[in-house]
Simulated assay, not measured.
Amino acid sequence: MRIGKFLAGLAIAAGVLAQPALAQDKTPVTVFAAASLKNALDAVAGAWMKQGGIPPRISYAGSSALARQIEQGAPADVFISADIDWMDFLQQRNLVKPETRSNLLGNSIVLVAQKDTAQKLTIEAGFPLADLLKGGRLAMADTNAVPAGKYGKASLESLGIWGAVESKIAQAENVRAALLLVSRGEAPYGIVYATDAAADANVEIVGTFPGDTHPPIIYPAAELAGSKNPDAAAFLRHVKSPMMKPVFEKQGFTVLGQ
């Protein structure tokens, strides 16, 4: 009888010890996300972990760089782009699961300066941005590839001032890098997302670019076709859940209809 109880105790103990091992064996969800999402998505990931989820691996960079990496076979489960074009790029190559795709968030682009030098400006057709630079540079994400840079260039073209500032641009690999140039005082002005400006206490918004001067800023999200992680779909549902809406809105995003 004692031996039976002893063996039963061992079985229970073994079962208890096996639980963490099973959790450790699970593969974290790998997320490729636009650099502008860092603060919001870090908070979303924190909520995921509080609910018992395995800490996700999140790689932040320009949407263009991430899409190219996915095209070249980089292992990832979920992609959240800062524009529709790069999600389309992957979908056209059958690299996303189209049934999982949705438009997640909206944003706006703004002109920022260091807080101690910031003066409010009216952004309108022909406004003297080139003169305001006073020999300095305008920090922008890559205007040929990175969504924030493309939106900014489109707006400057629409306002008729792209030609005056084109040679004065300091192009960065992503929008957070452009923000950093202004934050450190290496560029007097920069064009970034409103959400980026809110994330850096050293900069201030001096003007907002009118929404009709650039294409709508939309962040689509989707599960990638090569993902075999059973938690990928669950993480994407978590990101899109009503509970996460206040998290994104706190960072300045507009949550779009799913």
Rank of each mutant, 00 (worst) to 15 (best):
R2V: 08
G4Q: 11
G4R: 08
G4C: 05
G4S: 11
A8K: 15
A8R: 13
A11S: 12
I12G: 02
I12C: 07
A14T: 15
G15F: 09
V16I: 15
A18G: 15
A18C: 13
A18F: 15
P20F: 08
P20V: 03
L22N: 07
K26W: 01
T27H: 07
F32V: 09
A33Y: 01
A34P: 05
A34Q: 14
A35L: 01
A35F: 00
K38P: 01
V44C: 06
A47T: 12
M49C: 11
K50D: 14
K50I: 07
Q51M: 07
I54M: 12
R57T: 08
G62A: 12
S63H: 04
L66S: 04
A67G: 12
R68L: 11
Q69N: 11
I70N: 01
I70S: 02
E71A: 10
A74G: 00
A74C: 02
V78I: 11
V78E: 02
F79T: 11
I80T: 03
M87L: 15
Q92G: 14
Q92K: 10
V96A: 10
R101Q: 07
L111R: 11
L111A: 14
Q114A: 11
D116M: 12
T117G: 07
T117Q: 15
A118N: 06
T122L: 08
I123V: 14
E124V: 13
A125L: 00
A125T: 06
A125F: 00
A125Q: 07
G126C: 09
G126I: 10
F127V: 02
F127G: 00
P128D: 01
L129A: 05
D131G: 11
D131T: 10
D131K: 15
D131E: 15
L133V: 12
L133E: 10
R137A: 10
L138Y: 00
L138S: 01
A139Y: 01
M140S: 05
D142K: 08
T143M: 08
V146Y: 02
P147C: 06
G149D: 05
K150A: 01
S155L: 07
S155F: 03
S155D: 08
S155A: 15
E157T: 14
L159D: 06
W162Y: 12
A164H: 10
K168N: 01
K168P: 00
I169K: 03
A172G: 08
V175D: 10
R176L: 11
L179C: 08
L180G: 09
L181P: 00
V182C: 07
E186N: 12
A187W: 04
Y189P: 13
V192Q: 04
V192F: 03
Y193N: 11
Y193V: 00
A194I: 03
T195N: 13
A198G: 07
A198M: 11
A201F: 14
A201M: 13
V203W: 07
E204H: 12
V206H: 01
G207R: 11
G207P: 14
F209L: 12
P210S: 12
G211N: 12
I217E: 00
I218A: 06
I218N: 02
Y219S: 05
Y219H: 09
E223A: 14
L224P: 02
A225V: 04
D231P: 04
A233I: 09
R237T: 14
V239D: 03
M244V: 00
K245R: 13
P246A: 06
P246F: 09
F248Q: 06
K250D: 14
Q251L: 02
Q251A: 14
Q251F: 15
F253R: 04
F253H: 06
F253Y: 15
G257R: 10
G257F: 02
